[in-house]
Amino acid sequence: MTVRHLLLRLLHAVVTVWATFTLSFALLYLLPGDPVAIMLSGQGGVANTTPEQVRQLRAAYGFERPLPEQYADRLWAALHGDLGRSVGSGDTVVHTFATALPQTLALAGVGLALAVLLGVGTALAAVATRSRRLSRLLLSAPSLGVSFPQFVVGLVLLEVVSFRWKLLPAFGHTGGSGLVLPAITLAIPTASVIAQVFARSLADVLLSPYVATARAKGAGRARVLLLHATRNAALPLLSLLGLIIGSLLAGSVVVETVFSRDGFGRITAAAVEAQDIPVVQGAVVVSALVFAAVSLAVDLVTPLLDPRLAERPATGRGSRGWLRPQSA
């Protein structure tokens, strides 16, 4: 891991975020429709506002100026941590997300932990069991898990656990208990993906020569599986992390709505519906930041886990070298 490599990766991240910002600006500002008109119709004001009043409001939000000027201004402001104000609530976009993100992070964090436990557990059990029938059952569970829409899972959990058994609250952020059902709902599809990928990669790794060597040396079944195979089989999961985080963020849109939680997903969904451009753009930029940060972290951590990469520090395509069939 050289400094040059690190800087290059950082530059990648910055360019990704900038490109996302620019694209989202272009798309959102070129959309037909006038955000101010929508804001007024949402508030019921359109009826009696004069065109002059509407023009003043547009000017106040800066929608009147030429596009390049708006872009330059917004980019400059964004670099200074100012993503504008929500057209709907008048609150700053940064404050909106700053107060919402912790909720989503807690949800996504617990969801991810559950997903990893469930996914890795299922895959390990499927590979470890001597019963073919159980193995097949466990291997088919993930397909079921990804095919149930999240809102169905959420609503069934609510109906049974919260409304009938009255075990857990149906909404809100009341401590840990309010997190259980949404985290389970969020975790199920992710756990399924993890189980599928991990089971496949475990099966592959178990066929590799070093595992045969380990067996030949007398390592037991459990030792081979947990100590020798798991570590290498986990690497593909790490490269999936970006996708997994993405699906957790996307899942938060549905889960936060069903469980009445405030957070990134709810705010994004509401902003898209209301065409609250500054907030939508904020959501895109925040997502890009998260993705860039996760990929950067994965890039930095992978060589630590896989010494082969550390010896052969590479940029760009080389850094995915371990995904290639092992020829050595």
Binding site: S41, F151, V152, E159, V253, V254, V258, A269, A270, E273
Partner: peptide
């Protein structure tokens, strides 16, 4: 939400996620 001229007699407002079949839970149960 967009009752054209004016307000606001909305039964409810919120994110589009709200549109996800609220009756579904009962049916599924």
């Amino acid at each position: 939400q967009s009752s054209p001229p004016v307000p606001a007699r909305r039964r409810h407002v919120g994110g589009p996620g709200r549109r996800i079949l609220p009756g579904m839970a009962v049916v599924l149960c």
